[in-house]
């Protein structure tokens, strides 16, 4: 499967959608640079499609570029020292080259986002109600009592009772789970067509986390919202995603429909992630198998597979030229992997 030197091998597009995708990311590249430090390529040629109403998971360790991908797509990275290349199309419109005013009109109304830490993601000096009504004012032209009543409805819909009173609460008066519910209410306030959830449950207790995921699953199913779920937890993905992309060091290394990914993981990194998840169906004594090394032991993609230094299936061909992302089996299976020595199917 190794690409011949001299012959450019073009990556296949993961999760390619029949018909028009809602979100179409092509060759997205994000480079951070500053005067004193060397430049860092956080996202390196990521392409993916999201179909309307579908749920797509992006999985990877910290630093794999999964959050940066979503922030870059929405123009939320700021301008200083950040270079974003490639293209991001939402419903046919190019988000990366859109005038700022237009992009601001899309954000919150068409594409909404939920962040990792509900403790710090809500403004501490504004009431919860104000933070919900302001988005209704902005995109739905609702004012005063109308906006307040709608905000109360939204809180009800995310499972917060006594919602009229809760609107007057400040974030510090709510628990972490409640705050994340508020974030979800805010995100869904304008019935967006795409919701990006960036590690929505990482900062929460396990039980609360399960509730929040269930809530998200129900709400996106009910409202036909497409969901991009960014997480480091394969368990989260297993429960709700149609398609899963595994990222490592800024690139997609494996991409497959959920069943295929869990049944026949091909990339050694994916199998490593799966082996390091504690499982209820295994005997107690079975040790967890962590992936050796840390994400900082990477090779630049230009010199071969970035995962090679940590990989147990490393072969001489792993190093030298970057492995392309190619189909495993038939194209219809939509299973892609970026590896010269993939794990054989069981």
């Amino acid at each position: 499967m190794s690409g011949d030197a001299g012959v450019a091998v073009v990556d296949e597009v993961p999760g390619l959608v029949d018909g028009t995708p809602l979100l179409k990311v092509r060759d997205l590249t994000v480079t951070f640079s500053s005067r004193n430090r060397t430049t860092v390529r956080a996202v390196d040629g990521v392409s993916l499609d999201v179909a309307p109403g579908s749920t797509v998971g992006i999985v990877g360790e910290s630093g794999s570029g999964k959050s940066v991908t979503s922030l870059a797509a929405l123009g939320l990275l700021g301008r200083r020292g950040v270079e974003v290349g490639g293209s991001v199309e939402f419903d046919g419109a190019d988000l990366l080259h859109m005038p700022e005013d237009e992009l601001r009109a899309v954000r919150g109304r068409e594409i909404a986002m939920i962040f990792q830490d509900p403790m710090s993601s809500l403004n501490p000096v504004l009431t919860v109600g104000r933070q919900i009504t302001e988005i209704l004012e902005r995109h739905r032209d609702l004012k005063g009592n109308e906006a307040r009543d709608r905000a109360a409805e939204l809180l009800q819909s995310v499972g917060i009772g006594d919602s009229l009173r809760r609107l007057r609460s400040y974030p510090h008066q709510l628990s972490g789970g409640m705050r994340q519910r508020v974030m979800i209410a805010m995100a869904l306030a304008c019935s967006p067509r795409l919701l990006i959830a960036d590690e929505p449950t990482t900062a929460l207790d396990v039980t609360i986390s399960a509730q929040i995921l269930e809530l998200l699953r129900l709400l996106v199913a009910e409202t036909q919202t497409a969901l991009v779920l960014i997480t480091h937890d394969l368990g989260v993905v297993a429960g709700m995603c149609d398609t899963v992309h595994v990222m490592y060091s800024g690139r997609i290394v494996e991409s497959a429909p959920r069943r295929a990914l869990f049944a026949e993981p091909q990339h050694p990194y994916t199998t490593g992630l799966l082996a390091s998840v504690p499982r209820m169906d295994q005997p107690r004594g079975n040790p967890l198998l962590p992936i050796p090394g840390s994400p900082s032991d990477t090779l630049p993609w230009s010199q071969g597979c970035a995962f090679a230094p940590r990989c147990t299936r490393r072969v001489p061909e792993s190093v030298g030229c970057p492995p392309p992302l190619l189909h495993v089996g038939s194209r219809a299976g939509r299973h892609l992997v970026r590896c010269v020595n993939p794990v054989p199917s069981p």
């Binding site: 939320l76 700022e100 009109a105 954000r107 986002m113 710090s120 809500l122 902005r138 805010m186």
Partner: peptide, 14 residues
Amino acid sequence: EDYVRTAEAKGMTR
């Protein structure tokens, strides 16, 4: 701060 990013993500005007 994260909440400023949230406000940006909500599409609030500058």
